[in-house]
Amino acid sequence: MRHLLTLRETSESDIRFLLDTATALKEILQRPVKKVPTLRGRAMVTCFYENSTRTRTSFEMAAKIMSAEAINIAVAQSSVAKGESLKDTVRTLQALQADCLVVRHPSSGAAHFIASQVRIPVVNAGDGRHEHPTQGLLDLFTIRQIKGELQGLEVAIVGDIAHSRVARSNIWGLTRMGARVRLVGPRTLLPADVDRLPVQVYTDLRSGLEGVDVVNVLRLQTERMEKGLLPSLREYSRLFGISVQSLRVARPDVLVLHPGPMNRGVEISDEVADGACGVRSAVEEQVTNGVAVRMAVLYLLMGGGGMSGQD
């Protein structure tokens, strides 16, 4: 594995390696001195063409705990504003001797394109509506940690599936690890030919949540409404909002995830977000686990000779 671009193209054994490594590395986060020397002298460059303080900070934490330099290119103020092409920008970063590029870009496939242009490992930190593999991994990690294993679990992904890279990474990662995936959302937010994905599709929340072990709630971008894909947030919230009430049909030990940032009162109620009223919400653990998973990714990709025992 040279890059991490998608979970669709990541093998079960690589996913397992990353989750196991993240489990081992998470221990470091609990130490008083959160630092290991593993990646000393290495430089991870984050290059975000879309704002995302959360993801970028998580990668920076991961790099710094592993003793790598974490350098952020403030894209908006840099050469992009001067019309430099993505190809030239990433080649320049490589020439500056970066050891790993972490890229967020609004265009689907941008990470693939960058990987084709440079010799150093590329981590996709979200490309358009395509994939967000480290988010997918941290969701798998969180579910596995709390539920014990992924095999056989029934997981509902609820909300704006069409525009969601988190949904796509979850679908491929979860199904590869043996979980069953349901997609739940209004017809206008489901992608074309959705029934050809390895999932079950529901446009009714109640039947979609019936008997599920895990609910992954997607963020609803409010501009979806402005583009005429939804009548109103109020109606969306009533039909698809995750509340203590709507979770009643799920399994009693149902686990709720949300990639953040949350729109409380829209796709998720306050009680569910805060894990009140007996709801098992893992929203904060997801953030911590994100650092552990990204440490594992950097450990795997920035090593000298690929993975031991595999090619």
Binding site: G128, R168, A192, D193
Partner: peptide
Amino acid sequence: NEGYTATVMGVPGMP
């Protein structure tokens, strides 16, 4: 083209 391939690739489709 709008369809399964575009859905997997996350590329906005043209129906």
